[in-house]
Structure formats: structure tokens, C-alpha cells
Design a protein around this nucleic acid. Sequence first.
DNA 1: GGCAACTGACTGATCGTCCAGTCAAACTCA
DNA 2: TGAGTTTGACTGGACGATCAGTCAGTTGCC
Lengths: 220, 220
Amino acid sequence: MTQQAQQEAREAPGGARADAILDAAELVFASSGYEGAALREIAERAGVAQGLIHYHFGNKARLFEKMVARRSGQINAARAERLAHLRAEGALHLEEIVEALFRPTIETGLELAEDGGGFARILVSMANSNDPLARDMTETYYDPIAHDYIAALQEAEPGLGRADAVWAYMFAIGVGMTMMAKTGRPKRLSDGLCDDGDADAMLARIVPFICGGVRALVTT
Amino acid sequence: MTQQAQQEAREAPGGARADAILDAAELVFASSGYEGAALREIAERAGVAQGLIHYHFGNKARLFEKMVARRSGQINAARAERLAHLRAEGALHLEEIVEALFRPTIETGLELAEDGGGFARILVSMANSNDPLARDMTETYYDPIAHDYIAALQEAEPGLGRADAVWAYMFAIGVGMTMMAKTGRPKRLSDGLCDDGDADAMLARIVPFICGGVRALVTT
DNA sequence: GGCAACTGACTGATCGTCCAGTCAAACTCA
DNA sequence: TGAGTTTGACTGGACGATCAGTCAGTTGCC
């Protein structure tokens, strides 16, 4: 163990065990929901004693928040970077904006997918919940980047009003949920034709769908 | 009490107390989720002893299912009726189909809204879940009507392929979730400009958005 | 009197949380 | 350097609360 590693192992909650807990928490929260998730199961999956969760995170709510914060930071950094990159290249195009909005979520969400879902499903339940914990976290971690993308929509489509841009963003997020929830329903409804496990194939439909929807809201 | 009413009160679970339990279950499941909901709270809100829930419904899962079945029956009957009415009038138009798809859900969902949400939020969590209970119920109560509307989409837009029609339906449902979840986020993101409590105002944006999206998937 | 509706105290399991204690590494000072 | 002290990650059993579910008993209408 290097001195650097020792130093990191000391910092709470940034050590390897704390990360293992966050990884396990992601799996269990995703498959069981917040209320349904048992801290004992998280501890077991992380290969850690039950008490260690409270040592590092205090309580269940703070564990949930730290878990969301970690992954959300990655997602929204990638979103911001992609948007900045598009701006640097010149005029914004609607298709590129929508692609930039969803690809980081897909890739981060499916990365850890096991039985299918992973972190993305946590986002879905957070987005559709209105309890104070979920609302505060959405406000903290996702509202700032939302404002950026709403502004980008208006830049790309100058005829789009402010209210329409906000609605368009909300609708776009709603469409993205279809993809992230990974329920298997598209396959069932289409006799195997559609697969919500294939992120690229889905994105190929989602992007034109949303762009068509946005342009339909533009008052010309 | 009429003989008819007495007869209904006899059938389990069809009596007035059973209905009161279902009403209370709707409220509690909506605000706390399936795992978070406590049968004791449901009994208390219904003004009924805890044991009566098990007398009428057996267990928590069956109570949940009966509750969903009751309201879903109303929603999907209205959906089917509206679609049949459109067909009877002649050629199907995309805007009318989308309107027919959502209005019954909105009206049934907001009808019982108290702190905001009601049954609609249960639908949202069901649609985005992949646990066996939610999947089976979605399959039983919502897949049949989904097939009808997917077929209607293809009739209204002949250039729309089968896979595209299924995706379009899924995306449309995703957009509808935005509206049904009633998180208050649109208002927050727009400084009060957008209100997700105003179903009619939302539907006025959702319908053109979805229609624009669907038409963007049509291969011409 | 019979039967279905209904009650509420109860059970065992499981939950989040707590805490006394272990242990190895880091630090202190002669 | 090395014995004594301190630190902090970590353990695992115990706690009270609460959960879904059970059941013997009561009620009220035919």
C-alpha cells in the first residue's frame, strides 16, 4: 500500500470500502426502490458489516444522496462538456443537442447494468417522485444542467418561446425515461421487433422523435 | 339500503367498506409507493380495522392489484370508447388519437388529486418498474389497449412502420408521464411560467409535440 | 340461530439505527 | 529506535419501531 493509497483510505467517505458500499447501494436501490432497499443487503453485497454504512454515511437518506451525487456528477459533467463542445463548434443544431443530452445518461446508466437498469432506473424514480428528498436532489443536481439545455433549445430554434422550451425539455426527459427504465415492454408490444436494451437503436428513434416534437412547438 | 345495494355490499370485495379501502389505498400507495405504503395507514384512512383489509383482499399485493384494476378499467374503457368513436366518424387523425389516449388518464388521475398526483403517480411508477407484479399488471391491463392505439397510429399515418409505431407509442407514454407525475418541476424551471397542475394547458402542448415526433418517424 | 362482516390484540420477521469493542496503523516522546 | 498513546476504520450483536399477516371473538342482519 502506497502512502497515497493510505491517505485515500483514511478520507471518509472516499475509501475503497465506501465506494464498494456506493456500488452496492446503486444495485439494491435500483432493483428495490428506496423504501424497499434494505441496508443489510447493501452491506452484504459490498462485503461489509452493516454498521459501516452508518459509520460512513450516517443514515439511509444520506447514503442515497451520496450515491446519486457521485453518479450525477459524472453524467452532468459529460452533458456540460458535450454542450460546450457543440457551442465551440459554431451554431447549435437541435439533433446534436438532444444527442448530447441523452448519451451520457445512457452510457453511465447501462455501464453498471446487470439485470438491466442500474443507475438509470434510480433517475427515473427520482424524476417521477415528489417526496422532499427526491425533489431536493433533482433541484440540486439536475436543474442547473436543465437550464443550460433549455437555453440551448432556444438558441437552436429561435422561434421557440420560453414556456415551450421548458415544456419541450420536460417532454424530452419523459421520452428518455422510456429508454432508461428498460422494462422490456417495447419488445413485448412489438413481438420482438423493438429492444429497449439496445441504446443506440433507441437513440436513433428518440432523437428524430424529440426534434420533430420540438419543431412542432415552434411558432413560425 | 336497497336490495341491490345490499347485494353489492355482500360481494367481496365490492361493498362500500371495500371501496373505502381501495380509495384509501390509492392515496397511500400514490404518496408512499408500494413498499413504503403501510396497510395500517390505509386502514386508518378508510376508517376501518386493519384486519378488514386481509378479510377482503387477502394480502398487500392483491389489494394493490384490485386497486389498479378498478381504476384501470375505467381509464381503458374510456380510451377504447373514444377510439371507437373516432373510427366511427371516419378517417383517423393523429391529433385526435393522441388526445383520446391521454384525456381519460388525466381526468381519472386528477380527479382524486389531493396533494397532487393520485392514481396517475401509481401508473407512472408501474410503467417504469420491472418487478414481476408491476410487469404482469401492465401486461394485463395496459398492453391490450396499447395494441389498439399502435394500430390506430399506423392507420392515421400509413408511412409509419410497425417498429416505429411501437416506439412512437412508448415515447408518447413517456411524455404523458411528465404530465402525470406532477412534480412541480416545470414551474420551477420556468419561474412559474409552466404549470403541470393545469392538465388542459399541458395537453395543448403535448398533443402537437407527440404528433410532430410521430410524423418525424414516418418514412416518406 | 346462522352466517357474513368486521374488530383489534397479537405474532414473528425485518427494518433502520445504535454502540461497545477490536485492531492495525500513525503519532509522540524519551 | 521503540514502548506507550491516540486515531479511525470496522465489526456484529442488540435495540425499539414497524411491518404484513393471523385469529379468536363480537356484531348485526336474515
